[in-house]
Amino acid sequence: MNRKILLLLCLLTLLSVNVFAKDGEQTDDYLGVTAYSPGEQIFSLNAGAIIPLFTIATAAPDGTDIINPLISTNLGIVGGLKWGSFIADNFYLGIDLTGMFTSSSTRTLSMIPISFTTGYYFIAWPFEFPIYLNTGFSFNTLGDYFTITPCIRPGLGAYWNITEEWAVGLNAEYWFIPEIYFSGNYVEQSLIANFLQISLTGVFHF
């Protein structure tokens, strides 16, 4: 499992390099044609499932496992809204508001990340393949617990444009939620929670 996640991260990193390398160029990219110009906007809705994966203990005491599966947590639901505005060909900046809910054996976990989002669309009309990165803060509750943590969510999608304005497709998004304590009694409880979101999406271009 860990090797797969590492592979995914490497892939995302490589793709990101391409994104910035292409920024500003007006030529076709290697997958298709330039489709989105500066000033165009997208609005998307997501709904799907979120899978608890594991936690990474960043300050685990000696003799304890660093990576532990999140077996106490069930499959959850996720939904979200995203708005983006293209600032270069196929490259957008925007805002993302997402909410996820799941349950453990005794409590409900909810995370509501509010993120800045940036992404790049690879086009092969009528298909398009965005990669994106949401970074922001997540408002997390678990029973009586509440905390605000950073939230980093890289993702990729595969959409089919059913009209010139509407596209539908699938997103896969990885959630890194670090809850890190630098001092105090909780340092050894510092964890990075990892989730995988799989969702259906509808995108409106305007």
Partner: peptide, 17 residues
Amino acid sequence: VDNPSGLFYSLQYESEI
């Protein structure tokens, strides 16, 4: 926030009653 432990730590080590 004054939680009794880390939120994800609490989730990770939650035992099923």
